[in-house]
């Protein structure tokens, strides 16, 4: 895992600001976004990057690989959906309630699950997704299998709905992206950030040094869930509909995991890089390779994942590390520069 030390961190800081500025510029230039297909791809990239980064907090920085994030994503989506459809109001209270609820649910389910290690934990998270997914399907109060369909409304920030011009969605996705990435960047340097990495590198060792690993994991989980829920709310607003298989599913959970790992788990840029590669691939192969026959786009997707995992499991950041000659340096070395020991 690449750890930014001293000078690298300020380079990274400058790149971050430049990137945000460039993306923000796109939102401001009239007609740059519009209803173009790349606008849709950009919105998805920013959304999935945010999702991946929220997973990264728990999975990458804290080392707890969970396949359960689609539950929090779903809670956020239903928060927004229920506000819009069942209660007929603006989505924002639903978004906040959903995010807080997701964090609370994450605390409840994680408390017992964190006693589990390795693959047992991972499978427990699958089980949780399946349980929630199926329960949502029979829970009539939230619409059950019928789902929640959004009413047709004019474009507005108040309701966060747009049809022809995606600029609003793009701006919203950008805000979400800056929020999640910004918090993670901050967090890297706080005590919590270091404790998380300590737990990741060796839980018993960290505990022997006085780190309350349970609390650390819990906080990472809650933060991770909170952001995942915000992403879910955006997803609901973007698609005009929420139903259980759309949001609470193993497929969706795998997206959280895959994008982060493909980009580079535990790194700041990993989630963005992963999304920037996987999402355009997914969208463009589906639309442009349809003539090759059904399923070809997904075969390519599968092959790409296999290839990446065989060649460079550290993801794109791993490739970059090789490319710019940092292959010899390990995470430990970078960590030593800044470790609070």
């Amino acid at each position: 895992m690449v750890e930014p030390a001293g000078k690298n961190r300020s380079v990274e800081g400058r790149v971050w600001i430049a990137l945000v500025a460039a993306l923000a510029l796109l939102a401001v230039i009239p007609g740059a976004i519009g209803n173009r297909f790349y606008a849709h791809v950009l919105v998805l990239i920013l959304l999935y990057a945010s999702m991946a980064q929220s997973w990264n907090i728990l999975g990458g920085y804290c080392g707890q690989v969970s396949f359960g994030h689609s539950v929090f994503f779903g809670i956020g989506a239903y928060g927004a959906g229920m506000a819009m459809v069942k209660y007929g109001t603006v989505p924002w209270p639903g978004v906040i309630i959903g995010a807080i609820l997701a964090a609370a649910v994450s605390a409840v389910i994680s408390w017992p699950c964190f006693k589990l290690r390795g693959h047992y934990f991972a499978i427990a998270t699958f089980a949780i997704v399946e349980i929630f997914g199926r329960l949502f399907l029979v829970w009539d109060w939230i619409g059950g299998a019928l789902g929640l369909d959004y009413p047709i409304m004019d474009d507005s920030w108040k309701y966060f709905l747009w049809s022809s011009d995606k600029t609003g969605y793009y701006a919203g996705a950008l805000v979400l992206f800056v929020l999640v990435f910004g918090v993670v960047r901050r967090m890297e340097r706080t005590r919590l950030g270091y404790y998380m990495r300590a737990v990741r590198e060796g839980q018993e060792t960290a505990e022997s040094l006085g780190v309350n690993s349970s609390l650390v994991k819990l906080m990472a989980m809650a933060l991770s869930a909170f952001f995942a829920a915000l992403c879910g709310a955006f997803f609901a607003q973007y698609n005009y509909r929420v139903d259980p298989p759309m949001v609470v599913s193993l497929d969706m959970s795998m997206k959280f995991v895959l994008i982060t790992i493909l980009g580079g788990m535990g790194t700041f840029w990993g989630p963005l890089l992963g999304a920037a590669v996987l999402i355009p691939l997914q969208e463009y192969t589906r639309t442009y390779l349809a003539s090759l026959g059904p399923g070809v786009d997904q075969m390519i997707y599968g092959l790409l994942i296999i290839f990446m995992m065989m060649r460079q499991p550290r993801g794109i950041m791993g490739f970059i590390g090789e490319f710019s000659g940092k292959a010899g340096k390990t995470a430990k070395k970078g960590g030593d520069d800044n470790a609070a020991s």
């Binding site: 690989v65 994942i305 995992m309 499991p313």
Partner: peptide, 30 residues
């Protein structure tokens, strides 16, 4: 596939086989 993923990271074989599952499923579909 798997041999080249083992030991590199805990998640690599799992995700590589996930990719394999998507490939196989769609191959049969096609």
């Amino acid at each position: 596939v798997v041999r080249r993923c083992i030991g590199k990271s805990a998640m690599a074989p799992l995700l590589a086989t996930f990719g394999l599952s998507i490939f196989l499923k769609n191959f049969c579909l096609n």
